[in-house]
Amino acid sequence: MKLLIIEDEIELLIAISNYLIKENYLCELADNFAGAREKLSMNAYDLILLDISLPDGNGLELLTTIKEHQEKAGVIIVSAKNSSDDKIGGLDMGADDYLTKPFELAELNSRIKAILRRRRFEGNSVIKFHEMAIYTDNMLVSIHRKNIKLTKKEYDLLLFLLINKNRVLTKETIAEHLWQDNIDMADNFDFIYTHLNNLRNKIKNAGGTDYIKTVYGMGYRFTDI
């Protein structure tokens, strides 16, 4: 899977690419408008991460170049602006998603995976993990080939954990993923616990293993061990 990361802030660029390389993506980097345009016209990418505020040009203009040369590529716009105008404008111009800074790597990963699933659905729509399978097309989950019934939030939670397996996710990160910024009550993240418990029980009742480990009561990790 080949990615192009366009981001003018070098430290951010490195942090993102290091993480994505660990996630087994092939990453190419561009830290300015001209360089990004050159790369876009030369190579084919599966996904492009696009920061729209570049020092030498507006990233939104790159979307036209992307349309020309990268038909198959998915595009995630990364912006410091949480403005719905930019969001709608970017999505109208063919971007698949819009991520506002600051964001979590786990969140970025889950968005990338979602787009790749949508873009290349042949065989990619099923995520398997031991006895567990998630059918993302129709949002079904099966344990030992038997479907289990999950609520929308439980499904989202399981998918988020599985996609970011082996990674510690704090309660806040999970809450942010599930409810975006609609819930801004710092001391109420305990309700994630309720959701997680329900999910664990449903998996265990279907004969599955509980892969969700609690980390110091502050975070969770979906893991083999």
């Binding site: 430290e11 951010l12 942090a15 506002t100 600051p102």
Partner: peptide, 12 residues
């Protein structure tokens, strides 16, 4: 917006 970028780096 300028504040968001360093915050991003710190958080990551």
């Amino acid at each position: 917006h300028e504040i968001q970028t360093p915050l991003s780096i710190a958080r990551l």
